[in-house]
């Protein structure tokens, strides 16, 4: 998507002077940034610099000690948190599939009241798998035998099935081969999708419009 087009979109994610601390230790110090709809951003930095804390704070898994987090203009609070979580797909390094078979893992979110009415047909499950270059036969496979890279793509498939538009990825392509990685990049070429990816992969750097660098809980924008 052209950068000009992104620039006129409203901010989907906004951190306003957000600090997070645990046991007197500062994990984030007055972090401010915003991401517009469709923007693709990379979050870099050394291990322990606060990258994952940024993602967790946005999802309400860490509570700010100061500042405000906004999602689509709404401040994150106990009333809005569930709604915000429903709009965001978070995919970590070792996603939990939470079911016996791959099909059940993909359908897991549709067991919850919030998504029950959206339950997709089998044809849509197959479409999503193909889009991520995963074999359709995987649907009947036992989750116990699924590799780390496949798990990551299945977690991404769940986000696509839920029609989420904001994705937080934590080192997602680290376990993927070149072809699978390409499939993931193709998914995020969609201008509708907003992306904040924690990654060390230079391929992500190339594809990101915005780059943030974390250092000891502080954020700087380098692109």
């Amino acid at each position: 998507m052209a950068e000009n087009a992104v620039a006129i979109m409203p901010a989907v994610i906004r951190f306003d002077e957000v600090s997070v601390g645990v046991d007197g230790k500062n994990l984030l110090s007055r972090v401010s940034f915003s991401l517009r709809a469709g923007e693709k951003a990379l979050l870099g930095g050394k291990s322990g610099s606060g990258k994952s804390t940024v993602l967790k704070t946005l999802l309400g898994m860490r509570s700010p000690t100061a500042g405000v987090v906004y999602f689509n203009g709404q401040p994150l609070n106990p009333i809005t948190v569930q709604n915000i979580r429903r709009c965001i797909a978070y995919i970590g390094q070792e996603p939990v599939l939470g079911a016996d078979t791959v099909r059940n893992a993909l359908l897991l979110p549709f067991q919850f009241k919030a998504h029950r009415h959206l339950s997709p047909p089998d044809s849509r499950l197959k479409d999503v798998l193909q889009r991520l270059r995963l074999p359709v036969g995987l649907l009947s496979r036992d989750c116990a035998g699924i590799s780390g890279g496949e798990k990551q793509r299945l977690a991404l498939a769940r986000g696509l099935l839920l029609q989420k538009t904001v994705y937080l990825l934590d080192e997602v392509t680290s376990a993927l081969d070149a072809e699978s990685k390409q499939a993931v990049f193709e998914v995020f070429a969609d201008p509708q999708l907003t992306l904040l990816a924690v990654a060390h992969d230079p391929d992500w750097l190339e594809r990101s419009q915005t780059v943030f660098e974390m250092h000891a809980g502080q954020m700087t924008r380098t692109r």
């Binding site: 898994m61 569930q82 797909a89 978070y90 970590g92 939990v96 897991l108 839920l162």
Partner: peptide, 16 residues
């Protein structure tokens, strides 16, 4: 904890 938070992120209420 990871499994529990995954359910939350997939749209489950706390109770679910």
């Amino acid at each position: 904890q990871t499994e529990y938070t995954t359910y939350l992120m997939l749209g489950a209420s706390r109770w679910e």
